[in-house]
Design a binder for these strands. Structure first.
Lengths: 226, 226
DNA sequence: CGACGAGTTGACGAAACTCAAGAGTCGTGG
DNA sequence: CCACGACTCTTGAGTTTCGTCAACTCGTCG
């Protein structure tokens, strides 16, 4: 496997705080698998025997509601993993996974990791850390959905995209706006209108390119201080 | 510790699938601590050295937003645990914990559990299962918040309260309506009005007592099948 | 070229929040 | 023992936000 790819895998919670040698051994000779946009990795309810790490692209996790519509639960990018718990515990996946863009993902055999775990109990902590991080992300998402109006959630999304910089910056939407809207818990129309509202705060949108004049303005707005 | 209390602790994910002997040993001589309503267990950002299991009462987890308001993240009842990840990993608590009613909670020393874990790697699975369950609950909450209007979320809450029964049943709100409203992501006013709307579907509310004429009606409504 | 999908915009209606007032409970203290 | 205040909950009125439906633009790709 590519060194660049390995570096991305290493950013994952599971591989971040372990020895380089152990990390390489866990990956073994596995190599990232290419996925075309729209391709389904597994469905909600499937029993999956491997955990997945995104090396490139974006994988959306979604849940089907009874009335036919889907709800986006998460969108995972490079370095992020999913399906750990379902794979390691052998329980049905709680959400379906589908490529939201052309992607490359690495799959690790759960059985192998499980036996590794009994041999080296310290491995339990990275796994727990990974699960904990997933939980925290969800909690934050839930919190924002409950406490912030749509426009502020968009501001927060843009601020996250921009990263910890100050001042002006140009960012690119990582995936389709419709999907972003779903992830933020709103309709595409509302997302579009929300972006329009942010124009006054120095946000210019052209296609998937976004120019932000002052990131800290957005960040303050997302926090609810404004 | 009381046998009845122990039975409740055993319902927890951490203790459900392990030997009775091991469970008793993990609890050791710890005994549930009484908490009065309003008492704070720990604050968001605290480093906590023990994980908590509710034996009686209700503990709410909440996050403070910058503008002063709190957002309810979860409300844990008998048999439920929280703070595992923060305690075991030694990272700051992601939410604060406060008794929403007079309660009794059992606290287990994280350091002890950690050493237990390195000695017996199989213990990693119950811990992972616990974390996974928390995550799943959050995902479902997120899903409902995104996809269902307020009244349906209330219907779902009532259906959950009623359990897997059929027909008519009387239930009691486990904690204050204001808190329920927060947990469901709405204002107390909306919750009150939502309950009023459900009157037509055979839901009668008197104080904290609720009479439901047909549970399956509520359940169908909550699913989005209407 | 034409079909399709993504995105934007407008108009409208429904849902939910805010502000405000009032009823009922409970605990406290005179 | 009663009066008061604090608190929870409900209800009303008004406003905002958001979703729905629909039309239209603009790329992309056969």
């Amino acid at each position: 496997m590519d060194e660049a790819d390995f570096a991305i895998v290493r950013r994952n919670m599971l591989f971040r705080n372990i020895d380089e040698a152990l990390a390489r051994e866990m990956v073994g000779d596995r190599t990232p698998r290419p996925l075309r946009k729209g391709q389904v990795l597994f469905l909600q309810g499937d029993l999956i025997d491997s955990l997945h790490i995104v090396v490139a692209g974006w994988i959306k996790l979604y849940r089907a509601t009874e009335d036919g519509t889907d709800t986006v639960v998460a969108v995972n990018g490079p370095g992020q993993s999913f399906g750990e718990a379902a794979a390691l515990l052998g329980i049905p996946a709680h959400a379906g996974a589908e490529a939201a863009a052309d992607s490359r993902i690495l799959t690790l055999d759960a059985e192998r990791l499980r036996s590794r775990l009994t041999a080296d109990p310290d491995l339990a902590f990275p796994i727990l850390a990974s699960a904990s991080m997933h939980l925290r992300v969800m909690v934050e998402e839930l919190e924002q959905l409950k406490s912030l109006p749509a426009t502020r959630r968009i501001a927060g999304f843009l601020a996250d995209l921009a990263g910890p910089v100050k001042g002006a910056i140009e960012v690119v939407f990582p995936y389709e706006k419709t999907l972003i809207a779903g992830r933020l818990g709103m309709t595409p129309e509302s997302f579009s209108r929300g972006l329009a509202k942010l124009r006054d705060l120095g946000v210019g949108v052209d296609r998937e390119r976004v120019s932000i004049s002052r990131v800290e303005t957005l960040r303050r707005m997302a926090r609810g201080e404004e």
